[in-house]
Design a protein around this nucleic acid. Structure first.
Length: 855
RNA sequence: CCGGGUGUGGCGAAAUGGCAGACGCAUUGGACUUAAAAUCCAAUGACCUUUUUGGUCGUGCGGGUUCGAGUCCCGCCACCCGGACCA
């Protein structure tokens, strides 16, 4: 702010209250069994998304979400809820490790420093977290249980009969390792030479690493995987019971990518090979004119003919070196190579040439397709490129009165229609043809109807130092779990945790640590950052428990006592976690639920995404644009309350909105006006009680505004409409600014209403006015509906929908009386002159509309 | 290309199908002041009109439903954010 003098002494009292709240544990939540726990109060678990404590500190986007949840937490406490509102740190992760490598400082040191900074910034905003529950994912007391949960996954399988995770002991097959929820597989993975690590698909953006933007290539490697695909169906079904934005549910559904179709097996003559394909259009089987395998398909070397071998291998090599960006560039021309082999189309015995092409992905379906160029755009493009035949087998259905036109102009027809040139399918609608061909294939053992998912198993290992070590040892080429009693498995102290430059993880350099026993070695991979953030909301319920990951009583009370499938009542955070974090957490939660460790099937009942805050220039905030607003600087100039209030006043929580310093000043001015309702500045520059204050009753008008304010603020907080709640408090404040004498009762009601938004100022004023207790501990005010009823109201009178006059009528006036009053209006008589009144619409208490027509 | 979101004054925004623009910012005028800042009061969608009383138009564009549409339906446009050869 440009002025030298503060409008109110926030620098002095804000930090004082912050210290008081922390040292008095003002917002501590008690668990069942704790002294002071009151089971008659319902629970409210409100959670912010776990922050990664980066070196840059908090930004204004964090503040937006955190302020919203803080308002709700404070509001619920005042309404008598047991409120669980915790905060902690998602502290493992690549940036800390990268920084450590660059500076030579141990990531533990920099992580601790960043956490310090984050915590002090959060406390400087007056958020009402229960700091006794704070923890970080890097605390051995926490990751001990992350490792424990991994062991639960390792020792469980998905029973397709019960559709549930069960202990591996219930598996009756011969090879339990083939069904574990945590398993080892040789997988083509994203290897980033620069980072010296493998990345998850999610961490690769446009063929480059999300962190650092380095090129990524594909390599087969032995990896730990989590069998999330087994839960695909349940992860879709579970969404129904959740109060999430529909757009987020859709995002998750699309990510899981369920599609119904069929698997079809094609024999390859001259050998005992066959190739399986997945197709959503088995009805077009007669239209297949060639086949394509992914270049990585294991069958490729076996079927390639001698003449084609050189070309095929060259193509495979070229594809392998391509980044994902190049490979998925839609604009580029299709490429591919003929293998020399053919497969037999089971429906008509035709020989189909088998090609390899990188537009077929190994990771989806079976990594092979039957190409139907007449009815698939990609296949058609490829067929054109290489001069392959096109055969039409679906005719577009035309409107009844039109002549049906076989053949198509230009593009290709990929919709549903009527089967043609398809033998026994001819004349069938697409849906019927799909059913017919599926059972035809099944009867002959050539295929079957099936469901395929886009979702893939979760690549769960990383070649890094700063993550949770696996509680696994290797002996004689086989993995086994270490004893639960040996947890946590802590990383060794290492001087050098740089990547080895090979896929060998940094931990492999700690020779002593790796040697577990005479012939057993520790697993040297570490878990991804997602692991720690997958279950932190559970630990917050019972963070100190050293014998269980969460105690049964705490679990029941905080997670399941509201009777919803979800556990956390409200979860607020950015859209960037719409898919991965939320999906992973739901997956783990379901496993723990199946295994009997949790009593709810879903983690987060209600989800809200706060919108992005743009820079003052309307652009995304970024260092390079130089438009970053830091909370620290705003707090310094205007105080924490002003920052909180402004961010809530900007607009709807979920909307993207630009920053305005002038807007901050407006909020600041409002708070100053509230301050001056109670206090005035004396000659020495100190603040004393305003002489205008008096213990007098409200006027009728004042009482109405106050009770309207209680009503609206209460309703608006519940609907997360913080901006309109604030504007109503402004209206209320403006009502009293010039009231002399000014009823003390106004502040007695306004300050508790304001306290969730601007807790420091509310508390300070409350205590200076000599009110008893704390503003934040007052019961939430209740409005008196009787004070809101008006005796006489003004209603608009329209003629043909256009406003012509306003009339005053008693609030309880009958329709007849209102009509009479409207007809009596001079302006109405004038504007209806010479016309006949056809109809009169009267909405009681709202308006009158006269429909007239020239007479 | 696909999906999602948004479009209302100079700006951020309000508005169960019922008086469009609450509240805030900015601007202008006034009060207070030696002066300024702060504060308080007033005006502030556009256009027309003879001051006024008044009138016309107005929620991205084009249609529709309705006594009445920012709001509901159909068809477009623009911008923002995601995803992307998923067979």
């Amino acid at each position: 702010m440009s002025t030298q003098r503060k409008q109110f002494p926030f620098t002095e009292f804000e930090s004082r209250w912050q210290k008081h709240w922390v040292s008095s544990k003002a917002f501590q939540a008690s668990n069942p069994g704790d002294p002071g726990f009151d089971p008659s109060r319902p629970k409210y678990y409100i959670l912010d998304m776990f922050p990664y404590p980066s070196g840059d500190g908090l930004h204004v986007g964090h503040v937006e979400g955190y302020t919203a949840t803080d308002i709700l937490a404070r509001h619920h406490r005042m309404r008598g809820f047991n409120v669980l509102h915790p905060m902690g740190w998602d502290a493992f992760g690549l940036p800390a490790e990268q920084f450590a490598i660059k500076t030579g400082q141990h990531p533990r040191v920099t992580t601790a420093r960043n956490i310090e900074k984050f915590r002090s910034q959060l406390q400087a905003l007056g958020f009402s977290y229960d700091w006794d529950r704070e923890f970080g994912t890097t605390d051995p007391g926490y990751f001990r249980w992350t490792q424990w949960i991994f062991l639960k996954l390792y020792n469980a399988w998905f029973n397709p009969q019960t559709r549930k995770a069960e202990p591996i002991s219930t598996f009756t097959g011969s090879d339990p390792d083939s069904v574990r929820l945590a398993y080892v597989a040789e997988m083509p993975v994203n290897w980033c030479p620069e980072l010296g690590t493998v990345l998850a698909n999610e961490e690769v953006v446009d063929g480059k690493s999300e962190v650092g933007g380095f090129p990524v290539e594909r390599r087969p490697l032995r990896q730990w995987m989590l069998r999330i695909t087994a839960f695909a169906e349940r992860l879709i079904e579970g969404l129904d019971g959740l109060d999430w934005p529909e757009s987020i549910k859709l995002l998750q559904k699309n990510w899981i990518g369920r599609s119904e179709g069929a698997q079809v097996r094609f024999q390859i003559p001259g050998g005992d090979s066959e190739v399986s394909v997945f197709t959503t259009r088995p009805d077009t089987l007669f239209g297949a004119t060639y086949m394509v395998l992914s270049p990585e398909h294991p069958l490729v070397p076996r079927i390639t003919t001698a003449e084609q071998r050189a070309a095929v291998e060259e193509y495979q090599k070229k594809v392998a070196s391509k980044s994902d960006l190049e490979r998925t560039d839609l604009a580029r021309e299709k490429t591919g190579v003929f293998t020399g082999a053919s497969a037999i189309n089971p429906v008509n015995g035709e020989a189909l040439p088998i090609w390899i092409a990188d537009y077929v992905l190994m990771g989806y379906g079976t990594g092979a397709i039957m190409a139907v160029p007449a009815h698939d755009e990609r296949d058609q493009e490829f067929a054109r490129q290489f001069g392959l035949p096109v055969r039409e087998v679906v005719r577009e259905r035309k409107a009844a009165n039109e002549e049906t036109v076989p053949g198509h102009q230009g593009g290709c027809f990929s919709g549903e229609g009527i089967a043609i040139h398809s033998g026994f399918l001819d004349g069938m609608e697409t849906a019927a043809a799909k059913r017919a061909i599926s059972s035809w294939l099944e009867e002959r053992g050539l295929g079957h109807a099936t469901v395929n998912y886009k979702l893939r198993d979760w690549l769960f290992s990383r070649q890094r130092y700063w993550g949770e070590p696996f509680p696994i040892v290797w002996e004689g080429g086989k993995h086994r779990a270490i004893d639960e009693g040996e947890l946590p498995v802590v990383q060794p102290e290492m001087e050098d945790f740089k990547p080895t430059g090979t896929p060998e993880p940094p931990l492999s350099k700690a020779r002593e640590w790796v040697r577990y026993s005479g012939n057993a070695q520790r697993e040297t991979n570490t878990m991804p950052q997602w692991a720690g953030s997958c279950w932190y909301y559970l630990r917050f319920c019972d963070p100190k428990n050293s014998s269980h990951f969460i105690g049964a009583d705490a679990e029941k009370f905080w997670l399941s006592s509201s009777g919803t499938p979800g556990s956390v009542d409200l979860y607020v955070g950015g859209t960037e976690h719409a898919v991965l974090h939320l999906l992973y957490a739901r997956f783990w939660h379901k496993v723990m639920f199946d295994l009997g460790h949790l009593t709810t099937p879903e983690p987060f009942q209600r989800l809200v995404n706060q919108g992005m805050i743009l820079g003052p220039d309307g652009q995304k905030m970024s260092k390079s644009r130089g438009n970053v607003i830091t909370p620290d600087s705003v707090i310094e100039d205007y105080g924490a309350d002003s920052l909180r209030l402004y961010e809530m006043f900007m607009g709807p929580l979920e909307q993207t909105k630009p920053w305005s310093m002038k807007g901050v000043e407006g909020g600041h001015r409002f708070l100053a006006r509230v301050w001056r309702l109670g206090l005035q500045e004396n000659q020495e520059g100190g603040w004393e009680l305003s002489p205008d204050l008096a213990d007098i009753p409200f006027t009728l008008a004042q009482a109405r505004v106050v009770h309207e304010t209680i009503k609206k603020v209460t309703a608006d907080i519940s609907s997360l409409s913080f901006n309109t709640a604030i504007s109503q408090m402004m209206v209320c404040t403006n009502e009293f600014v010039n009231a002399k004498p000014r009823p003390l009762a106004a502040l007695r009601i306004l300050l508790p209403l304001l306290s969730p938004f601007a807790p420091h100022l509310a508390e300070e004023l409350w205590s200076r006015l000599g009110f008893e207790g704390a503003a934040s501990a007052q019961p939430w005010p209740v409005h008196d509906e009787a004070l809101l009823v008006e005796t006489e109201i003004e209603i608009p009178v329209q003629v043909n929908g256009k406003l012509r006059d306003r009339i005053r009528v008693p609030a309880q006036a009958s329709k007849e009386d209102v009509e009479a009053a409207a007809r009596a209006s001079a302006k109405i008589i004038e504007s209806t002159a010479g016309q006949s009144i056809v109809k009169i619409i009267i909405v009681p208490g709202k308006l009158v509309n006269m429909v007239v027509r020239p007479a």
